[in-house]
Amino acid sequence: MRMPDSFNKYLDETGATSRFTYRYFHELVRPRYEIRQFLRQCYLIGYNSLPLIGITGFIMGLVLTIQLRPSLISYGVESQLPVMVSLAIVREIGPVITALIFAGKISSSIGAELGSMKVTEQIDAMEVSGTNPFKYLVVTRVAAATLMLPVLVMISDAISLYGSYLGVNIRGNTSLRLFFFQVFQTLQFGDVLPAFIKTFFFGFAIGIIGCYKGYNSSKGTEGVGRSANSAVVVSSLMVFIIDLIAVQITDILGLN
C-alpha cells in the first residue's frame, strides 16, 4: 500500500527536525563555546521581548479579573478573586499566553533572519570564515530562547498579578499587601514548579523550530516568508502539545 505524499512529507519533516535537534545537543556540549554570541542573543531574545510581554501580561491580569468578578459575585465568593486569578495565571494562562506571544515574536524573527542569511549565502560565508554556523547561529539562539522564556514568564506573571490587583480595586478596595498575602497563601509548590519547568520546554521548542525553519529555508524571498510563517504556526502548536503533555504528567505525579 502506498502512503499519501503528504504523509511521507510529514514523516520526512519529522525525521529532519529530529536530526536537527540531535545535532543541537551534540554541538551544545562540544567546544568551542560561543559565549559572547549567546549573551548577545539573551539580550536580543529576552530583554527586547520584555515590553511586549509586560504589556500583554498586565492586560491579561486586568481583563481576567474584570471578567471573573461577576461569576464569583453570583456564587458569593468575590473575596476569592485574588486566589482564582493567581492560580489561573501562575498555573496555566501566564506560561501559555507568554509562550505564544514569545513564539510570535521570536520564532518568526529567528526563522526570517536565518532564512535570509541562508538565501544571501551569509551562512556559507560564516563557514568559510572558520566558524561553525550551526554553533554560532543555532545553538546560541536555542539556548537563549530556552533560558529566557522562563524568566519572561516569571516577570509576566508578576506584572499580571499587579494588573489583577488594579482590576480588583476598580470596584473594590483591597490593599496591595492583602492582595499578595492572599495570592501567596494560596499558591503551593505544586502550582509553581510544574508551570515553571514546562516553560523551559516551551522556550526550547520555540527556539529549535524557528532555527530549523530558517536554517532549512528554500531559496528566494518567498522561502524566507514561508519559513517565518511556518515557524510561528508550528511553534505555537508545539506550545499547546507540550502543555497537554505537561498537564498529564503533572496529573500522574499528583501535583494537580
Binding site: S116, M117, E121, A125, E127, V128, S129, G130
Partner: peptide, 19 residues
C-alpha cells in the same frame, strides 16, 4: 578544512556581508 579556508578566499555572488 579551516586551515585551507584561511589560505583560500571566497567572494560570494551575493557578497554575503553580515547584515
Amino acid at each position: 578544512l579551516d586551515n585551507i579556508r584561511s589560505r583560500v578566499g571566497f567572494l560570494f555572488q551575493s557578497n554575503a556581508l553580515y547584515d
